[in-house]
Design a protein around this nucleic acid. Structure first.
Length: 314
DNA sequence: CGGTTTTGACCTGCGC
DNA sequence: GCGCAGGTCAAAACCG
């Protein structure tokens, strides 16, 4: 953690922060007034969220988010660090009840070393399939139980984004392999599970469509990439770099899928700029965004995306 | 042929 | 203990 980030953790933040505030909308505004959807900003609060990411919160406060109904397709993002609650579900449920919404949950950590479960489960399953069955299986189950008692399974921090997009799987520069899909309770839309294809990188992401607003895609990232962004992809590495999981907790993260999905939904200059303009920098270094200032398209992007995504350097 | 997606089965945690 | 829902596995199918 940088000194700057550490300092931000010492700040005091309001306990609740709705998108109305972030968007400078009057709290009495009709929900339907947000863009062309029925999204209700009042349903989404940043309570808890920024306890886990004060830097991002700080940025929101400073910039007042700079979001306008027409300028961004990103409704919300949240960082889950505090409990084992499911961020995505919280976001969805938040659309129904008020206040609880974007509870960014939490997590814990389970790096490869922290969760040998991945390996043990595999081997157990293999054993079962191998037909040795019986005793060994019971033993492994016992082990699992004792572990459960000793250490509560921990999870990596999660960050979720709500983006308005036609496509479910938004490109972010990294390569993903889908490893599962599940039906979501109370939703006609399934949830897809992706894992980063890079070896020894255990970053996962879940993608699902909001049943309340099918135009909204909810993407939840878990863990952090331990490698640079692949260079040989059509997708902009720069756009992805802005969301490097190595920087998961920085304000810049809020640019990630909004960036990409906006490109999709606006369909024009932004997409071009993203796809062809900034594919050079492999490393998601902190000075990354400065490079945008040098390109002619920076100004164009600035116009398209909210100010928070292009934090201006003094 | 290697990588990716699909999909049913299985595991785990949690609430009742 | 049971049932449910979320999450993961892995074989088979698919694709470039």
């Amino acid at each position: 953690m940088s000194n700057e980030t550490r300092d931000l953790y010492n700040h005091q933040y309001p306990s609740s922060f709705s998108l109305y505030e972030m968007m400078n909308l009057p709290t009495s505004a009709a929900p339907s007034s947000y863009g062309n959807t029925s999204f209700d900003p009042s349903s989404y609060s940043f309570t808890d969220c920024l306890q886990s990411s004060p830097a991002a919160y700080e940025s929101l406060l400073q910039k007042n988010f700079g979001l306008s109904p027409s300028s961004s397709e990103v409704f919300n993002s949240s960082i889950d660090q505090e409990s084992n609650r499911d961020v995505t579900n919280d976001v969805i449920n938040g659309g129904v009840s008020t206040e609880t919404a974007t509870r960014v949950s939490a997590s814990s950590s389970s790096s490869e070393a922290d969760h040998p479960g991945e390996v043990s489960v595999k081997s157990r399953r293999k054993r079962e399939l191998g037909g040795n069955g019986g005793e060994e299986d019971q033993n492994s189950k016992k082990v699992g139980k004792t572990k459960k008692n000793e250490v509560k399974k921990q999870r990596e921090p999660r960050v979720s984004f709500m983006t308005k997009s036609e496509v479910d799987h938004l490109e972010d520069g990294y390569r993903w392999r889908k490893y599962g899909q599940k039906a979501v309770k109370n939703s006609p839309y399934p949830r897809s599970y992706y894992r980063c294809t890079t070896q020894r990188c255990n970053v996962k992401k879940r993608v699902e469509r909001s049943f309340q607003d099918p135009t909204v895609v909810i993407t939840t990232y878990e863990s952090q990439h331990n490698h640079p962004i692949p260079t040989n992809l059509r997708g902009s590495s720069a756009a992805a770099a802005m969301f490097s999981a190595a920087d998961l907790m920085t304000p810049r993260n809020f640019s990630h899928d909004m960036f990409r999905s906006s490109a999709y939904t606006t369909g024009g200059a932004a997409a071009s700029a993203l796809d062809y303009g900034y594919g050079q920098d492999v490393n998601a270094n902190p000075s990354m965004h400065q490079e945008y200032h040098h390109g002619g398209e920076y100004e164009l992007l600035r116009e398209i995306f909210p100010s928070i995504f292009f934090k201006q350097e003094p």
